[in-house]
Design a protein around this nucleic acid. Structure first.
Lengths: 221, 221
DNA sequence: GCCTGCTGTTACCTACGGTAACAGCAGTCT
DNA sequence: AGACTGCTGTTACCGTAGGTAACAGCAGGC
Protein backbone atom coordinates (compact mmCIF):
# COMPACT_ATOMS: atom_id res chain seq x y z
CA UNK A 1 0.00 0.00 0.00
CA UNK A 2 0.92 3.58 0.15
CA UNK A 3 0.16 4.61 3.70
CA UNK A 4 3.06 2.66 5.13
CA UNK A 5 5.46 4.14 2.68
CA UNK A 6 4.18 7.66 3.08
CA UNK A 7 4.22 7.34 6.85
CA UNK A 8 7.81 6.36 6.65
CA UNK A 9 8.50 9.14 4.22
CA UNK A 10 6.88 11.55 6.61
CA UNK A 11 9.08 10.38 9.43
CA UNK A 12 12.13 10.70 7.28
CA UNK A 13 11.20 14.12 6.04
CA UNK A 14 10.56 15.19 9.59
CA UNK A 15 13.90 13.84 10.71
CA UNK A 16 15.59 15.50 7.77
CA UNK A 17 13.98 18.79 8.63
CA UNK A 18 15.21 18.50 12.22
CA UNK A 19 18.68 17.66 11.01
CA UNK A 20 18.57 20.57 8.61
CA UNK A 21 17.71 22.86 11.46
CA UNK A 22 20.58 21.54 13.55
CA UNK A 23 22.96 22.04 10.67
CA UNK A 24 21.71 25.56 10.14
CA UNK A 25 22.25 26.33 13.79
CA UNK A 26 25.78 25.02 13.62
CA UNK A 27 26.38 27.06 10.49
CA UNK A 28 24.98 30.06 12.29
CA UNK A 29 27.44 29.65 15.13
CA UNK A 30 30.37 29.41 12.72
CA UNK A 31 29.27 32.38 10.66
CA UNK A 32 28.82 34.39 13.82
CA UNK A 33 32.33 33.47 14.86
CA UNK A 34 34.23 33.54 11.56
CA UNK A 35 32.21 35.97 9.49
CA UNK A 36 30.73 35.36 6.05
CA UNK A 37 33.79 33.61 4.69
CA UNK A 38 33.29 30.60 6.93
CA UNK A 39 34.30 27.46 5.07
CA UNK A 40 32.16 24.43 4.49
CA UNK A 41 34.72 22.33 6.32
CA UNK A 42 34.51 24.56 9.37
CA UNK A 43 30.73 24.38 9.39
CA UNK A 44 30.75 20.63 8.98
CA UNK A 45 33.25 20.31 11.81
CA UNK A 46 31.13 22.51 14.06
CA UNK A 47 28.14 20.32 13.31
CA UNK A 48 30.24 17.26 14.13
CA UNK A 49 29.99 15.77 10.64
CA UNK A 50 31.78 15.98 7.30
CA UNK A 51 31.23 17.94 4.15
CA UNK A 52 29.21 15.62 1.92
CA UNK A 53 26.31 15.69 4.35
CA UNK A 54 26.16 19.43 4.12
CA UNK A 55 26.12 19.15 0.37
CA UNK A 56 23.33 16.59 0.44
CA UNK A 57 21.23 18.91 2.53
CA UNK A 58 21.93 22.21 0.88
CA UNK A 59 23.18 21.43 -2.59
CA UNK A 60 26.09 23.83 -2.52
CA UNK A 61 27.53 26.63 -0.50
CA UNK A 62 25.12 29.11 -1.98
CA UNK A 63 22.23 26.90 -0.91
CA UNK A 64 23.40 26.80 2.66
CA UNK A 65 23.99 30.51 2.73
CA UNK A 66 20.61 31.21 1.21
CA UNK A 67 18.91 29.02 3.78
CA UNK A 68 20.72 30.85 6.55
CA UNK A 69 19.92 34.21 5.04
CA UNK A 70 16.25 33.38 4.72
CA UNK A 71 16.03 32.61 8.43
CA UNK A 72 17.60 35.83 9.52
CA UNK A 73 15.91 37.90 6.90
CA UNK A 74 12.51 36.56 7.87
CA UNK A 75 13.18 37.36 11.51
CA UNK A 76 14.32 40.89 10.77
CA UNK A 77 11.45 41.58 8.39
CA UNK A 78 8.96 40.36 10.96
CA UNK A 79 10.28 42.75 13.57
CA UNK A 80 10.26 45.58 11.06
CA UNK A 81 6.66 44.90 10.10
CA UNK A 82 5.92 44.88 13.77
CA UNK A 83 7.44 48.30 14.27
CA UNK A 84 5.60 49.58 11.24
CA UNK A 85 2.32 48.42 12.72
CA UNK A 86 2.96 49.46 16.30
CA UNK A 87 0.88 52.16 17.91
CA UNK A 88 2.44 55.58 17.63
CA UNK A 89 1.03 59.09 17.63
CA UNK A 90 1.66 59.76 13.96
CA UNK A 91 3.25 58.50 10.81
CA UNK A 92 6.52 60.16 11.59
CA UNK A 93 6.65 58.34 14.90
CA UNK A 94 6.13 55.04 13.19
CA UNK A 95 8.81 55.71 10.61
CA UNK A 96 11.23 56.68 13.36
CA UNK A 97 10.36 53.55 15.32
CA UNK A 98 10.97 51.38 12.27
CA UNK A 99 14.33 52.98 11.58
CA UNK A 100 15.24 52.48 15.20
CA UNK A 101 14.23 48.84 15.12
CA UNK A 102 16.43 48.22 12.15
CA UNK A 103 19.39 50.02 13.63
CA UNK A 104 18.97 48.27 16.95
CA UNK A 105 19.00 44.94 15.15
CA UNK A 106 22.20 45.57 13.25
CA UNK A 107 23.76 47.04 16.36
CA UNK A 108 22.91 43.98 18.40
CA UNK A 109 24.29 41.44 15.97
CA UNK A 110 26.75 43.03 13.59
CA UNK A 111 28.15 39.70 12.47
CA UNK A 112 24.76 38.56 11.26
CA UNK A 113 24.33 41.89 9.60
CA UNK A 114 27.63 41.60 7.79
CA UNK A 115 26.70 38.15 6.64
CA UNK A 116 23.37 39.26 5.27
CA UNK A 117 24.55 42.42 3.59
CA UNK A 118 27.93 41.35 2.29
CA UNK A 119 27.39 37.71 1.44
CA UNK A 120 30.42 37.70 -0.85
CA UNK A 121 28.17 37.73 -3.89
CA UNK A 122 27.40 34.06 -3.88
CA UNK A 123 26.75 33.66 -7.59
CA UNK A 124 23.63 34.23 -9.62
CA UNK A 125 22.67 30.74 -10.69
CA UNK A 126 19.05 30.38 -11.64
CA UNK A 127 16.56 28.11 -9.91
CA UNK A 128 17.65 24.92 -11.60
CA UNK A 129 15.24 22.66 -9.72
CA UNK A 130 17.59 21.90 -6.86
CA UNK A 131 14.65 20.48 -4.96
CA UNK A 132 14.84 22.91 -2.07
CA UNK A 133 12.17 25.30 -1.05
CA UNK A 134 14.46 28.28 -1.21
CA UNK A 135 13.36 29.47 -4.63
CA UNK A 136 12.94 33.17 -4.98
CA UNK A 137 12.43 33.46 -1.27
CA UNK A 138 16.14 34.10 -1.22
CA UNK A 139 16.18 37.56 -2.74
CA UNK A 140 18.88 39.40 -0.84
CA UNK A 141 17.81 41.31 2.19
CA UNK A 142 17.98 44.77 0.69
CA UNK A 143 15.68 43.94 -2.17
CA UNK A 144 13.26 42.10 0.04
CA UNK A 145 13.07 44.99 2.46
CA UNK A 146 12.57 47.40 -0.41
CA UNK A 147 9.74 45.33 -1.81
CA UNK A 148 8.08 45.02 1.57
CA UNK A 149 8.26 48.70 2.27
CA UNK A 150 6.93 49.43 -1.20
CA UNK A 151 3.89 47.30 -0.43
CA UNK A 152 3.31 49.07 2.85
CA UNK A 153 3.57 52.47 1.23
CA UNK A 154 1.29 51.54 -1.65
CA UNK A 155 -1.21 50.14 0.84
CA UNK A 156 -1.31 52.94 3.30
CA UNK A 157 -0.56 56.14 1.50
CA UNK A 158 -2.62 57.85 -1.11
CA UNK A 159 -0.26 58.64 -3.95
CA UNK A 160 -2.62 59.23 -6.81
CA UNK A 161 -2.20 57.85 -10.31
CA UNK A 162 1.02 55.99 -10.92
CA UNK A 163 1.28 55.62 -7.18
CA UNK A 164 2.46 52.07 -7.29
CA UNK A 165 5.53 53.03 -9.21
CA UNK A 166 6.26 55.84 -6.80
CA UNK A 167 5.77 53.47 -3.87
CA UNK A 168 8.31 51.04 -5.23
CA UNK A 169 10.86 53.71 -5.91
CA UNK A 170 10.39 55.19 -2.48
CA UNK A 171 10.47 51.80 -0.83
CA UNK A 172 13.81 50.92 -2.26
CA UNK A 173 15.14 54.41 -1.79
CA UNK A 174 14.20 54.61 1.86
CA UNK A 175 15.54 51.16 2.58
CA UNK A 176 18.79 52.10 0.89
CA UNK A 177 19.04 55.26 2.92
CA UNK A 178 18.51 53.32 6.11
CA UNK A 179 21.01 50.71 5.09
CA UNK A 180 23.85 52.98 4.02
CA UNK A 181 23.45 55.29 6.98
CA UNK A 182 23.32 52.28 9.28
CA UNK A 183 26.38 50.72 7.75
CA UNK A 184 28.35 53.89 8.13
CA UNK A 185 27.08 54.52 11.64
CA UNK A 186 27.90 51.00 12.74
CA UNK A 187 31.50 51.49 11.63
CA UNK A 188 32.14 54.96 12.87
CA UNK A 189 29.71 55.33 15.73
CA UNK A 190 29.67 59.06 15.27
CA UNK A 191 26.60 59.60 17.42
CA UNK A 192 23.86 57.91 19.40
CA UNK A 193 21.23 55.81 17.71
CA UNK A 194 18.54 58.27 18.68
CA UNK A 195 20.27 61.16 16.99
CA UNK A 196 20.81 59.14 13.86
CA UNK A 197 17.16 58.15 13.75
CA UNK A 198 16.09 61.71 14.36
CA UNK A 199 18.18 63.16 11.57
CA UNK A 200 17.25 60.49 9.09
CA UNK A 201 13.61 61.08 9.81
CA UNK A 202 14.21 64.78 9.36
CA UNK A 203 15.75 64.08 5.97
CA UNK A 204 12.77 62.00 4.99
CA UNK A 205 10.49 64.75 6.18
CA UNK A 206 11.86 67.20 3.75
CA UNK A 207 14.15 69.30 5.87
CA UNK A 208 16.57 69.23 2.96
CA UNK A 209 14.10 71.31 1.00
CA UNK A 210 13.54 73.75 3.81
CA UNK A 211 16.98 74.65 5.08
CA UNK A 212 18.56 77.81 3.79
CA UNK A 213 21.61 78.03 1.64
CA UNK A 214 24.73 78.88 3.52
CA UNK A 215 25.56 82.51 3.37
CA UNK A 216 28.68 83.02 1.33
CA UNK A 217 28.19 79.80 -0.55
CA UNK A 218 27.64 80.21 -4.27
CA UNK A 219 23.99 79.43 -3.84
CA UNK A 220 24.61 75.92 -4.97
CA UNK A 221 23.56 72.45 -3.95
CA UNK B 1 76.85 60.17 -5.12
CA UNK B 2 73.18 60.14 -4.91
CA UNK B 3 72.04 61.92 -8.03
CA UNK B 4 72.99 59.08 -10.33
CA UNK B 5 71.31 56.52 -8.18
CA UNK B 6 68.19 58.59 -7.74
CA UNK B 7 68.04 59.31 -11.45
CA UNK B 8 68.09 55.63 -12.09
CA UNK B 9 65.53 55.08 -9.40
CA UNK B 10 63.37 57.69 -11.01
CA UNK B 11 63.55 55.96 -14.34
CA UNK B 12 62.72 52.67 -12.76
CA UNK B 13 59.82 54.06 -10.81
CA UNK B 14 58.52 55.68 -13.92
CA UNK B 15 58.79 52.45 -15.85
CA UNK B 16 57.10 50.59 -13.00
CA UNK B 17 54.27 53.10 -12.98
CA UNK B 18 53.77 52.62 -16.71
CA UNK B 19 53.80 48.86 -16.29
CA UNK B 20 51.33 49.16 -13.46
CA UNK B 21 49.02 51.15 -15.66
CA UNK B 22 49.22 48.57 -18.41
CA UNK B 23 48.47 45.81 -15.96
CA UNK B 24 45.52 47.72 -14.60
CA UNK B 25 44.17 48.19 -18.08
CA UNK B 26 44.46 44.50 -18.76
CA UNK B 27 42.75 43.74 -15.47
CA UNK B 28 40.05 46.18 -16.40
CA UNK B 29 39.38 44.38 -19.64
CA UNK B 30 39.13 41.04 -17.88
CA UNK B 31 36.87 42.33 -15.15
CA UNK B 32 34.66 43.95 -17.72
CA UNK B 33 34.45 40.65 -19.53
CA UNK B 34 34.29 38.13 -16.68
CA UNK B 35 32.82 40.16 -13.86
CA UNK B 36 34.27 40.67 -10.40
CA UNK B 37 35.29 37.04 -9.95
CA UNK B 38 37.98 37.27 -12.60
CA UNK B 39 40.96 35.15 -11.58
CA UNK B 40 44.51 36.35 -11.20
CA UNK B 41 45.57 33.80 -13.77
CA UNK B 42 43.12 35.20 -16.29
CA UNK B 43 44.29 38.74 -15.67
CA UNK B 44 47.93 37.74 -15.96
CA UNK B 45 47.20 35.92 -19.20
CA UNK B 46 45.38 38.93 -20.60
CA UNK B 47 48.37 41.06 -19.73
CA UNK B 48 50.63 38.56 -21.45
CA UNK B 49 52.59 37.67 -18.31
CA UNK B 50 52.37 35.31 -15.35
CA UNK B 51 51.02 35.61 -11.85
CA UNK B 52 54.06 36.49 -9.74
CA UNK B 53 54.46 39.77 -11.56
CA UNK B 54 50.96 40.77 -10.67
CA UNK B 55 51.71 39.91 -7.08
CA UNK B 56 54.88 41.96 -7.07
CA UNK B 57 52.97 44.94 -8.33
CA UNK B 58 49.84 44.71 -6.27
CA UNK B 59 50.67 42.57 -3.28
CA UNK B 60 47.60 40.42 -3.44
CA UNK B 61 44.28 40.16 -5.16
CA UNK B 62 42.75 42.69 -2.83
CA UNK B 63 45.49 45.12 -3.74
CA UNK B 64 44.84 44.80 -7.43
CA UNK B 65 41.12 45.14 -6.94
CA UNK B 66 41.59 48.16 -4.75
CA UNK B 67 43.79 49.81 -7.33
CA UNK B 68 41.19 49.13 -9.99
CA UNK B 69 38.40 50.38 -7.76
CA UNK B 70 40.26 53.58 -6.98
CA UNK B 71 40.53 54.40 -10.67
CA UNK B 72 36.87 53.91 -11.37
CA UNK B 73 35.75 55.48 -8.17
CA UNK B 74 37.82 58.57 -8.81
CA UNK B 75 36.33 58.91 -12.26
CA UNK B 76 32.76 58.52 -11.03
CA UNK B 77 33.28 60.90 -8.15
CA UNK B 78 34.72 63.49 -10.48
CA UNK B 79 31.69 63.40 -12.72
CA UNK B 80 29.40 63.59 -9.71
CA UNK B 81 31.21 66.61 -8.35
CA UNK B 82 30.86 68.08 -11.77
CA UNK B 83 27.12 67.59 -11.79
CA UNK B 84 26.89 69.01 -8.31
CA UNK B 85 28.69 72.14 -9.44
CA UNK B 86 26.97 72.53 -12.79
CA UNK B 87 24.74 75.49 -13.43
CA UNK B 88 21.09 74.78 -12.71
CA UNK B 89 18.19 77.02 -11.78
CA UNK B 90 17.93 75.81 -8.19
CA UNK B 91 19.17 73.33 -5.66
CA UNK B 92 16.56 70.81 -6.59
CA UNK B 93 17.72 70.93 -10.17
CA UNK B 94 21.26 70.27 -9.12
CA UNK B 95 20.29 67.35 -6.94
CA UNK B 96 18.27 65.86 -9.76
CA UNK B 97 21.16 66.33 -12.17
CA UNK B 98 23.51 64.58 -9.78
CA UNK B 99 21.17 61.65 -9.32
CA UNK B 100 20.82 61.42 -13.06
CA UNK B 101 24.56 61.48 -13.57
CA UNK B 102 25.02 58.60 -11.18
CA UNK B 103 22.25 56.56 -12.71
CA UNK B 104 23.50 57.22 -16.21
CA UNK B 105 26.93 56.02 -15.16
CA UNK B 106 25.74 52.73 -13.72
CA UNK B 107 23.43 52.27 -16.67
CA UNK B 108 26.24 52.77 -19.14
CA UNK B 109 28.68 50.35 -17.53
CA UNK B 110 26.87 47.86 -15.32
CA UNK B 111 29.86 45.52 -15.18
CA UNK B 112 32.02 48.22 -13.67
CA UNK B 113 29.23 49.07 -11.33
CA UNK B 114 28.88 45.48 -10.18
CA UNK B 115 32.59 45.27 -9.63
CA UNK B 116 32.65 48.41 -7.54
CA UNK B 117 29.59 47.70 -5.46
CA UNK B 118 29.82 43.97 -4.96
CA UNK B 119 33.54 43.42 -4.81
CA UNK B 120 33.10 40.06 -3.10
CA UNK B 121 34.14 41.57 0.21
CA UNK B 122 37.82 41.42 -0.40
CA UNK B 123 38.96 41.16 3.18
CA UNK B 124 39.60 43.82 5.80
CA UNK B 125 43.34 43.62 6.36
CA UNK B 126 44.87 46.73 7.82
CA UNK B 127 47.52 48.79 6.10
CA UNK B 128 50.43 46.53 6.93
CA UNK B 129 52.99 48.68 5.08
CA UNK B 130 52.58 46.94 1.76
CA UNK B 131 54.44 49.81 0.16
CA UNK B 132 51.63 50.85 -2.14
CA UNK B 133 49.87 54.13 -2.15
CA UNK B 134 46.44 52.64 -1.87
CA UNK B 135 46.06 53.20 1.84
CA UNK B 136 42.71 54.49 2.94
CA UNK B 137 42.14 55.87 -0.50
CA UNK B 138 40.50 52.54 -1.09
CA UNK B 139 37.44 53.01 1.07
CA UNK B 140 34.64 51.36 -0.86
CA UNK B 141 32.71 53.53 -3.23
CA UNK B 142 29.62 53.94 -1.09
CA UNK B 143 31.51 55.30 1.87
CA UNK B 144 33.60 57.59 -0.26
CA UNK B 145 30.52 59.00 -1.98
CA UNK B 146 28.85 59.45 1.39
CA UNK B 147 31.82 61.35 2.76
CA UNK B 148 32.05 63.54 -0.31
CA UNK B 149 28.40 64.44 -0.27
CA UNK B 150 28.63 65.14 3.45
CA UNK B 151 31.37 67.65 2.73
CA UNK B 152 29.34 69.33 0.04
CA UNK B 153 26.29 69.57 2.27
CA UNK B 154 28.25 70.91 5.20
CA UNK B 155 29.89 73.46 2.92
CA UNK B 156 26.88 74.75 1.14
CA UNK B 157 23.91 74.45 3.41
CA UNK B 158 23.29 76.28 6.62
CA UNK B 159 22.32 73.64 9.15
CA UNK B 160 22.90 75.42 12.42
CA UNK B 161 24.66 73.97 15.45
CA UNK B 162 25.60 70.32 15.13
CA UNK B 163 25.27 70.78 11.41
CA UNK B 164 28.34 68.78 10.58
CA UNK B 165 26.85 65.69 12.17
CA UNK B 166 23.63 66.20 10.29
CA UNK B 167 25.53 66.67 7.05
CA UNK B 168 27.35 63.39 7.45
CA UNK B 169 24.20 61.50 8.27
CA UNK B 170 22.40 63.02 5.32
CA UNK B 171 25.33 62.46 3.02
CA UNK B 172 25.45 58.78 3.69
CA UNK B 173 21.69 58.48 3.77
CA UNK B 174 21.19 60.17 0.42
CA UNK B 175 23.97 58.18 -1.20
CA UNK B 176 22.43 55.00 0.14
CA UNK B 177 19.06 55.96 -1.24
CA UNK B 178 20.54 56.63 -4.63
CA UNK B 179 22.49 53.41 -4.58
CA UNK B 180 19.70 51.07 -3.51
CA UNK B 181 17.17 52.62 -5.82
CA UNK B 182 19.68 52.50 -8.66
CA UNK B 183 20.57 48.90 -8.00
CA UNK B 184 16.93 47.87 -7.99
CA UNK B 185 16.14 49.97 -11.04
CA UNK B 186 19.09 48.56 -12.98
CA UNK B 187 17.80 45.05 -12.36
CA UNK B 188 14.12 45.55 -12.95
CA UNK B 189 14.00 48.54 -15.23
CA UNK B 190 10.53 49.40 -14.05
CA UNK B 191 10.54 52.88 -15.51
CA UNK B 192 12.61 55.44 -17.33
CA UNK B 193 15.60 57.07 -15.74
CA UNK B 194 13.88 60.43 -15.74
CA UNK B 195 10.92 59.16 -13.77
CA UNK B 196 13.18 57.50 -11.26
CA UNK B 197 15.15 60.70 -10.78
CA UNK B 198 11.99 62.71 -10.46
CA UNK B 199 10.46 60.50 -7.81
CA UNK B 200 13.64 60.22 -5.81
CA UNK B 201 13.99 63.96 -5.81
CA UNK B 202 10.40 64.20 -4.71
CA UNK B 203 11.14 61.87 -1.85
CA UNK B 204 14.12 63.96 -0.84
CA UNK B 205 11.97 67.06 -1.08
CA UNK B 206 9.63 65.86 1.58
CA UNK B 207 6.70 64.65 -0.41
CA UNK B 208 6.52 61.73 2.00
CA UNK B 209 5.55 64.16 4.74
CA UNK B 210 2.96 65.88 2.61
CA UNK B 211 0.96 63.10 1.05
CA UNK B 212 -2.30 62.14 2.67
CA UNK B 213 -3.04 58.88 4.35
CA UNK B 214 -5.02 56.53 2.22
CA UNK B 215 -8.70 56.70 2.98
CA UNK B 216 -9.73 53.46 4.59
CA UNK B 217 -6.23 52.71 5.82
CA UNK B 218 -5.87 52.56 9.59
CA UNK B 219 -4.22 55.92 9.62
CA UNK B 220 -0.88 54.25 9.83
CA UNK B 221 2.50 54.65 8.32
C1' DG C 1 84.04 42.74 -13.47
C1' DC C 2 80.86 42.95 -9.59
C1' DC C 3 76.82 44.32 -7.33
C1' DT C 4 72.00 45.91 -7.28
C1' DG C 5 67.34 45.86 -8.58
C1' DC C 6 64.27 45.12 -11.62
C1' DT C 7 61.56 41.68 -15.10
C1' DG C 8 60.20 37.47 -15.99
C1' DT C 9 59.89 32.39 -15.56
C1' DT C 10 58.65 27.34 -13.71
C1' DA C 11 57.18 24.75 -10.17
C1' DC C 12 55.23 24.26 -6.15
C1' DC C 13 52.19 24.74 -1.68
C1' DT C 14 47.76 25.25 0.76
C1' DA C 15 42.94 25.69 1.16
C1' DC C 16 38.58 25.52 -0.62
C1' DG C 17 34.31 23.95 -3.15
C1' DG C 18 32.58 19.91 -4.76
C1' DT C 19 32.07 14.80 -5.83
C1' DA C 20 32.58 9.77 -6.24
C1' DA C 21 32.39 5.39 -3.99
C1' DC C 22 31.59 2.86 -0.37
C1' DA C 23 29.75 1.15 4.58
C1' DG C 24 26.05 0.86 7.94
C1' DC C 25 21.45 0.95 9.51
C1' DA C 26 16.56 1.76 9.78
C1' DG C 27 12.03 0.14 8.01
C1' DT C 28 9.19 -2.14 4.07
C1' DC C 29 7.80 -5.68 0.94
C1' DT C 30 7.49 -10.62 -0.43
C1' DA D 1 13.92 -15.06 6.73
C1' DG D 2 16.06 -12.17 3.28
C1' DA D 3 16.19 -8.70 -0.65
C1' DC D 4 15.31 -3.74 -1.36
C1' DT D 5 15.09 1.19 -0.43
C1' DG D 6 16.57 5.38 1.35
C1' DC D 7 18.64 7.64 4.38
C1' DT D 8 23.20 8.71 7.38
C1' DG D 9 27.73 8.90 7.50
C1' DT D 10 32.56 8.04 6.02
C1' DT D 11 37.34 8.38 3.28
C1' DA D 12 39.55 9.73 -0.47
C1' DC D 13 39.89 12.20 -4.24
C1' DC D 14 39.61 16.15 -8.11
C1' DG D 15 40.05 20.89 -10.04
C1' DT D 16 40.96 25.41 -9.34
C1' DA D 17 42.11 29.44 -6.97
C1' DG D 18 45.29 32.46 -4.29
C1' DG D 19 49.87 32.90 -3.14
C1' DT D 20 55.01 31.93 -2.84
C1' DA D 21 59.81 30.16 -3.38
C1' DA D 22 63.73 29.78 -6.30
C1' DC D 23 65.97 30.73 -10.09
C1' DA D 24 67.42 33.08 -14.93
C1' DG D 25 68.28 37.24 -17.54
C1' DC D 26 69.27 42.00 -18.18
C1' DA D 27 69.83 47.07 -17.31
C1' DG D 28 72.85 50.51 -15.09
C1' DG D 29 76.22 52.39 -11.26
C1' DC D 30 80.53 51.49 -8.62
Amino acid sequence: METGTSQREDHQQEAAARRRKELLEAADRVVLRDGPEASMNAIAAEAGITKPILYRHFGDKGGLYRALAVRHTDALLASLRNALDAPAPDRRGRVAATLDTYLAAIEARPQVYRFLMHPADQGQQQEQEQGFDVGHHSAPLLRRMGDELAKVIADRVELGPGGEEVARIWGHGIVGMMHAAGDWWLRERPCSRERLVHHLTDLLWGRLALVDDRIGAPGLF
